[in-house]
Amino acid sequence: MSEGLLGSELFRLILGLVIVIAFSQLNALFLVWLERKVSGHIQLRPGPMEVGPHGLLQTIADGVKLIGKELILPLKADKKLFFLAPVLVFTPVLVGFLVLPFSPGLIIHDMNVGVLLVFAFSTITVLAILTGGWASNNKYALLGAVRSVAQNVAYEIPLLLAVLSVVLMVHSLSFSHIVESQKTVWFIFLQPLAGLIYLIAATAETNRAPFDIPEAESELVAGFHTEYSGMGFGLFFLAEYTNMFLVCAVATSLFFGGWNGLFGFSFGIPGVFWFLLKTYLLIFVIMWVRWTFPRVRFDQLMNFSWKVLIPLSIVNLLITAVVVKII
């Protein structure tokens, strides 16, 4: 009996992982296409139009091209670490998908520490970037890697503090509990500051413009992935988009009501669509920001985190704690 249960749970996990890998890849391909379309329309041009209807298959063509390219190992690079880094950058992102609450019945593994798991694993991405930048034996890559570490250390703190204020309200680290308690009112209305801090910090965490200083192409050529070619670069690229989906999905669950509809009304639309709709809207906002703003400077970025975001999130957390205690 217990062995059967264990077997079925394992089977569920493996099946889930396969689905997650398939979904995340397809999703990343779609997001790359979306980004090019969004940027195109913002910049008064149509974007990709040739491959497939409205260029939908363009990223698949690009992917095939990338797979066909030679992986170039720079002279005196650390071979093992150099090839480990792209793999390392992708795995933690996949783990995050396991606990994402797509809809009430559609959570691969509903853990009671789901929130903790996502943020614990997402930190590994930094390690991968540092590994890649270090192993490349290139000063631009190294500078990018160093910037990335500093940036992630600085932005992880406000990110977690913002999440903590939500957790304090729900008294749970489980995603499904958090989403359940937003049935009528989304937490973005109760915790607007925390939501804003989360979104800013998440943009920085995923190295998206205007916080894309680790790869800042006009300064560091391509930053930490300067020396990567072919699928080595492709994996970094896909990981960025998968990561973006992950942080937006977490934001949806924590602040925008997850699978719940507007103020308790779902208008007959299934929860999973609500969830995806909100996630993609957030992704669209992040893309919109990228194609509108210039890049901030490294020290300004750090100042903004240490002098503005962290104090604000601490104050927000204290107020939340006091209010929760009183109520």
Partner: peptide, 13 residues
């Protein structure tokens, strides 16, 4: 110049 600073859209405009 905007491209150097990281703003890509003004370039196209």
């Amino acid at each position: 110049y905007l491209l150097d600073i990281g703003g890509i859209t003004p370039f196209l405009y």
